[in-house]
């Protein structure tokens, strides 16, 4: 999108609702007579919410607008049937679905035909779209990973759902804990929670046995709170206090129970250290304080 803007196209970026889902009416209202493309993420990488791709796609068809979907986080987690799903372009990534890193794919619909401009130039491979020799081993790896994902998806999802519910049930009675993103319209493999008055990076430092992130991997080195959580309207404290937990194909019940115990223990420890928690306990409204930003 930024590249298109650089070329002179105008891009409208839409905020999502508090539950992380796109407001259909806001999207419809933002469409202009000269809108040529709508791009939506199928599943959000930080909070796991699933957008209504079929609904948005149908609207795009009606208006003759091309529809691009970033499905990097969706493959192997939600049903994707491009015979029926009204999507013109779909980005796919191998490594998010247990395939090798370094390869992805762009699905391009033939009818209605989407005309693309190549990003890579040279020998004209792949109908001129991607010049250069294909890495066969990666292509095969991605194909095989996607084949397995399709075979095992319902079983994977059922298992992940049970673990997701176990994790949420083990944490939901912690005081001042908030689920980020819609409660049910989400993939089971992601759980994003904010533990109010505990800073996310310090929590991650405490829960050493767990590989989790605060914010997305793309920005966790930048010290900025998650822009996704800010887009949901979360306060700065809550955005700084988030933990993104993911459940994989090989996660076990024992690991979930360990996660629950270690997170609870560290949240309690860090709250004992937290001046914000102390103020909250004393009934002080943190939003009413004049902070000196630094």
């Amino acid at each position: 999108m930024r590249e298109l803007e650089r070329q002179g196209f105008e891009v409208t970026y839409l905020d999502v609702q508090e539950d992380g889902l796109l407001d259909f009416d806001v999207l419809t209202a933002a469409i202009r007579p000269d809108t040529i493309l709508i791009s939506v993420m199928f599943v959000n990488n930080e909070i796991g919410v699933i957008q209504d791709i079929a609904g948005i796609g149908a609207m795009c068809r009606e208006k003759g607008i091309f529809f691009h979907v970033d499905a990097a986080q969706a493959t192997g987690k939600v049903e994707i049937d491009l015979k029926t799903l009204p999507v013109d372009l779909m980005s796919l990534a191998s490594h998010k679905t247990y395939g090798p890193k370094g390869i992805g794919a762009l699905y391009v619909r033939r009818k209605p035909r989407v005309r693309l401009e190549a990003q890579m130039h040279g020998g004209g491979h792949e109908r001129g779209m991607r010049s250069g020799t294909l890495p066969t081993h990666q292509c095969v790896g991605m194909g095989e990973a996607f084949r397995l994902a399709r075979l095992e998806m319902s079983q994977d999802n059922a298992k992940a759902r049970a673990l997701h519910d176990r994790l949420i049930n083990g944490l939901k009675d912690v005081e001042q804990v908030f689920l980020n993103g819609h409660a049910t319209q989400r993939v089971a493999q992601n759980l994003n929670m904010s533990f109010n008055f505990v800073e996310g990076e310090s929590l991650i430092m405490g829960i050493k046995g767990l590989a989790v992130s605060s914010g997305s991997a793309c920005t966790s080195a930048s010290l900025e709170p998650s822009y996704v959580l800010r887009a949901l309207g979360r306060s700065d404290e809550l955005a700084h206090s988030s933990l993104r937990m993911t459940i994989g194909r090989w996660t076990t019940e024992e690991e979930i129970d360990y996660a629950i115990a270690t997170i609870r223990q560290n949240v309690a420890k860090l709250r004992d250290l937290s001046p914000l928690w102390e103020m909250f306990q004393d009934g002080v409204d943190i939003a009413s304080i004049q902070w000196t930003a630094h």
Binding site: E199, E201, L223, P225, S235, D236, E237, H240, P275, L276, E278, I286, W291, T292, A293, H294
Partner: peptide
């Protein structure tokens, strides 16, 4: 924490939740 009102106590609170750091 010490009692803020105690005459022998000095309290400094710096930082801001928005920046991800508050020290007392």
């Amino acid at each position: 924490s010490f009692d803020k009102g105690d005459e022998s106590v000095g309290t400094g609170m710096v930082g801001a939740p928005a920046c991800g750091d508050v020290m007392k």
